[in-house]
Structure formats: C-alpha cells, structure tokens
Design a binder for these strands. Structure first.
Lengths: 152, 152
DNA sequence: AGCTAGTTGATAATTATTATTAACTAGCTA
DNA sequence: TAGCTAGTTAATAATAATTATCAACTAGCT
C-alpha cells in the first residue's frame, strides 16, 4: 500500500535528507538518500517492497537487502518507525511524533491520528511492574471511503 | 512463546469445546477439538507453530495447513483473536474479552491487561468519518523479569 | 447405511525477512 | 588530493510464516 503524492517528490531538498542522515551519524550514500527521501515523500506508510520497487524503477541496481538493511539502520537511529500493525509486511513511517493508527479492515488503508494525551497507565504499570516505553492505540474499523462503497 | 500450564490440560471438558464449536456453526472434528482445547489451555498466546508442535507430538498425522485453516475459521467465527502485535508469527488468543497488550521488547513476552474504560475516540472518529469496530492499546516496554536481569 | 458438502493432509508455492560474503566506497587522514 | 579502512552494497542463498491446490476422507444430515 502506498498513498503518496508523486508531485511532492521534490519537496524534500537533498540537503534536508543529508542533514538528517548526518545528524544521527549515518554515512551518506545514494541508496540511503533515495530510501529516506522516498519515506519522507510517501508519508502514508510504505513497505520495504514499495520502497524497493519505486527506487528500482529509476535505479535497477538497488538490492532488496540494501532496502531492508537501510530500513533497519533508520529504525535504530530513530529516523523512521516500523509499524507491524495489520497483516502482511511491516510499514515504515517518517512520522516519529507519537501518534496512533486506524486500520481499515476493508481496504487496508492506515491512517494516523493524534490524541491530546496518552491514556493513564501508571497504575497498570505499577501493578505489573512493567516499564512502559511506548504506548499506541490501534483502531480497526471501516474508513469513510469503504463505508460509501458498502452503502451502494 | 507459550506460557501455559500442562497440568491444566483437562480443565476444559470435551463437552465445553464441542459446545463452543457447535454454537458458532462449525463442524466438530477431532482436529478442531484438539486445536481449540490447546488455545483454551494455553491462554498465554500460542502461535500456529506452537499449536502444531504440541498437537503433533501426540498425533503425528496432523497437518500444518489444518492448523492454519482451523485458526482462520476460529478467528472468523470469533472463537479466538489473532494478535499481530510484535515481530514474527501471529499469536492466537482465547481471551476474546476486550483487552490490551504489553509486549516486553527484551524477551517478547506478551501480557494482557484491562482498563476500566476505553479511551474516548468519538471526536476523532467523527472527524475522520471512520467507523470504529475495535480499539486496542499496544504497549512496549520491559517486563519485571527483564528489568531484574538488566540490573544484575 | 448412504450421500454430499465441508474438512483434512500432503505438498508446492508464495511472501517477508535475514544471513553471507566478496566487491565497493564514504569520508577520514597524511 | 591520493590512499586507507571500516562501513556499505549487491547478489545470492537460506529461513520463516503463510497461503494455495487438490485428491482422499468424514461429519452429520436424510
């Protein structure tokens, strides 16, 4: 799945991408540049395969394993977030700001949403002696579009 | 992963399992019986492979595809819930009562927890025109056990 | 007891991801 | 600015998880 807008492809300057990579101490290579730019442009969550195919079109030499390696580096560096919600392949999100997800069970579309505050889990955490690092709401349902389709 | 207690193996009578299957209109077969009983006993989330191995020990004739087919039927019928949280294989949960999950990023242990009420998402749902069917909190962090290990 | 649609087991195929490794190169250093 | 080296890449193989196919079998109706 990939809901990006192609005409935005130049919205992120080469400089911005290079700066991001350097900021987290990753070497700047053309492959990383292309992959990070893809993720930034197609904010709507791309899979490793989406990224591979897209870059491969223009640059047939890129390797699948490079895409996976790179995505792993990016995740570890905090540049992107891996989303394992839903079936099938992981998606990679440039939106590292804490947010939640709505998955349409009909079409698979994944939508970000935000809440003013996180649910209070202090008592649960205390009770289970669990150290909470991250907390996300994962909502399943039917998106506006698929509701329309079902009506007709 | 499998955190069950073997001595509970008889806690669920044949009758209970048969009743559950009939209640949702599924034919009663020895395979379905064994798989559903396994899930009920090992409430602590079993993967398809866990279930396959466990049943295969006593009944070497059972097939992997039967396990997958059966789990799919069970999910569709609402007897079990598939959990795709975390990396690797899906887990199957007999606990169909609404609840949330805590995943230990060190050891992979998945713990259920409950909240008195669901977060209020009516305004988000309205804004995005999204029909919400299900809502789960997915928490990542470190379990009590792994915290102890890290200290020492 | 016989029939039939639903189920199973064996196997192959597919999809997603990780491992391996020799060749290559980004960016430091002289 | 050339040379060095550790980090990176591409190609490929391997693995893991899941789905597809289909002939043989069987649960449960009649």
């Amino acid at each position: 799945m990939c809901f990006g807008v192609t005409t935005m492809a130049l919205a992120h300057s080469e400089n911005e991408v290079v700066t991001m990579l350097k900021a987290v101490g990753l070497r700047v290579t053309p492959q990383r540049d292309a992959i990070l730019r893809h993720i930034l442009v197609y904010r709507g969550h791309s899979s490793a395969d989406d990224i591979y195919r897209s870059i491969h079109e223009r640059w047939p030499n890129i390797s699948v394993s490079t895409v996976y390696n790179t995505l792993k580096s990016f995740s570890e560096a905090g540049l992107v977030k891996e989303i394992t919600f839903g079936d099938g392949a992981s998606l990679f999100d440039a939106n590292t700001y804490p947010h939640h997800h709505m998955l349409c069970v009909q079409c698979g579309q994944l939508t970000d949403f935000y809440l003013p505050e996180m649910p209070d889990l202090t008592s649960v955490a205390k009770e289970l002696c669990f150290q909470i690092d991250e907390c996300q709401l994962e909502v399943r349902g039917v998106c506006a579009n698929c509701q329309d389709i079902m009506k007709s």
